[in-house]
Design a protein around this nucleic acid. Structure first.
Lengths: 146, 146
DNA sequence: TAAGATTGATAAGTCAATCTTG
DNA sequence: CAAGATTGACTTATCAATCTTA
């Protein structure tokens, strides 16, 4: 039986800390300037890139790593703020779509520079090589999610 | 003005996903087998390593990256479960200590193999070199927390 | 029956305000 | 007043159960 290495424990702890630091930084920025959570922003951004600016809730859940009910509650908030709306479906009456509204698109545009600044704050701490390495290594761990 | 790179966006997204995957894996394990959250476990482990098996709440907050009130509520739960107790302080009447109980130490021992298995599941996806690299790079990002 | 979506109860943490002690 | 700790109100997400449609 293989045992846990000191490096394993160290890296685990640092993954928790780095994530906490990065998300706190990003969250404070988006919240203060635009009243958006990270998932709010990611949702608007995902919709903006989707065909017709709309997505199925199911696909949104997968993309954001949320449960179905998490998506419902997230979209409730965005809908109350007028940033998304639920649009009628085509064929299958079970699926609901979330569609970006003009107001949502406008807020996304306004928030994007701050989001970019958050990412920049992160990548500016690393060299280009380190950034790429980090991405490659994290990609192996993220696969576990599937 | 320097702009965000594609790598920056990719790495940011992967940091979120890898963290979500890793903590979900660890959390499910500890929760199902021992009824502990990750922070519950980290708290018991921190106390076990501390002198006299006790720590100030303030220090616990720093260690766990929680606010003062977060620590209060975390310890409420552990205390109700009989895993920690608040011990009288020595000099400064303001500071409260959290002390590991025998029951807490026993549960920590019981949960440790599962915690180790969670870390092992993570590190087994990487080579030794990658694990060390990941730790070094995350350390740079985690500094931001301070 | 199964898939998508929602709801009620709950968990875990935050912030702002407050209390106590130094 | 400042520091440590707690409490109340709130946010965000989960799970389990339920409703609707395929």
């Amino acid at each position: 039986m293989e045992s846990v290495s000191r490096q394993g424990v160290r890296t685990w702890a640092l993954l928790l800390r780095a994530h906490a630091a990065a998300t706190r930084c990003m969250s404070d920025r988006l919240r203060a300037e635009h009243g958006l959570s990270i998932n709010d922003y990611e949702t608007l951004a995902a919709l903006a890139e989707a065909p017709d600016r709309r997505m199925k809730r199911v696909d949104l859940a997968r993309k954001l790593l949320l449960t179905a009910s998490g998506v419902t509650r997230l979209l409730d908030g965005l809908r109350n703020a007028g940033l998304v709306e639920r649009t009628g479906t085509d064929a299958d009456q079970r699926v609901a779509y979330a569609q970006l509204t003009p107001a949502g698109a406008a807020l996304l545009d306004a928030a994007s520079p701050d989001y970019a600044a958050g990412i920049l704050a992160l990548e500016s701490q690393l060299s280009d090589a380190e950034l790429a390495q980090l991405g490659d290594i994290l990609a192996k761990l993220a696969l576990e999610a599937a």
